[in-house]
Amino acid sequence: MTLTASNLESHGDDHFVDAEEDERSGKVDVEGRSPLRLAWARFRKDKLSMAALVVTTLFALMAISSPILKRLGVIDPYTPHQDLLDYATGNYPKGFGGGMSWSHPLGVEPGLGRDVLSRLMYGATLSLTIALSAALITVAIGTILGIIAGFTGGIVDSAVGRLIDLTLSFPATLMLLALSGVVVDRMTDLGVPAGATVNGLYIVIVLSAFGWPPIARLIRGQVLSIREREFVDAAILMGASRRRIYFKEILPNLWAPLLVYFTLLMPAYVSAEAALSYLGVGIKNPTPTLGNVLGGALEYAYTDFFFFFVPAAVIAAIVISFNLLGDGARDALDPKAGR
């Protein structure tokens, strides 16, 4: 029950997260107090989760290292190699497998001859950076609003509730598309550098702006139940300030569901970047992202299936490994979730 509907075709409540269902049916179950070590021990026993952890770690390492490799000149996503292309066939790469060689292990792209592996690695870095930033901001907004709503109650709570209703009622995909012209213009006027920066920032902003409500709901529900517990009462009795209670007492109890949600948001946002790129929103060529590298390969389904398939496979690998990691984390943190 962990797949967030990430392919942008859904509109409305994103309900594939247990906690929210639990809230709907009125039962909230928190395993927040379970020690980290216990969870880790459980996690380690699950082979699939461990494999997912290894793969995601590899992706993370690649994401961190590829800007360095680019600076060192090991990977080069930008330099054209038109000499490797055959002018007579529409500048299609010469040789086997789309121009595969030791210096270009996955070949070069048609038209310009840029190295495919470099573009994929650097593109994955940018896609993961976008997804990471958006996921962090989403979780931050959701957590802050959720804690405030849950703890303050009254008018603030219902105001946040209405804001959640409002945000969820917008057809997110359409808004992501339709706002791009408007918001990108505005941001450029405000001095954000045009091109990749503003387009990347746009994706981060709108994904977060439409992604936070489920987290806010989840956190609010958790806070409501935690609020009733003794340790919070104790803190209030001892005269702790409201801010202190929010951050010192409640937040540590929420990290488990947040971690799970965060892990599941990452693949959702990687897919979202690709889908938006297909629809023409987001970072554009020459700066590579997984989305626009895939977009540039779609035409080659018949003539170069490998070139067509590989970017999609990388996206799929990221989506699967992060989803399995999220599953594993949740199972480990909440052993009762039936699986």
Binding site: L8, S10, H11, T173, G181, A275
Partner: peptide, 30 residues
């Protein structure tokens, strides 16, 4: 709930298959 969200059109699927539903309509509008 999922169905309700979809009644108003699936932008990507309609675009890929050139189905002129509300999803494609909204895409054209944009």
């Amino acid at each position: 709930l999922d169905l309700a969200g979809l009644l108003g059109g699936a932008i990507i699927t309609e675009t890929v298959f050139n189905f002129n539903g509300v999803g494609k309509l909204s895409f054209t509008a944009v």
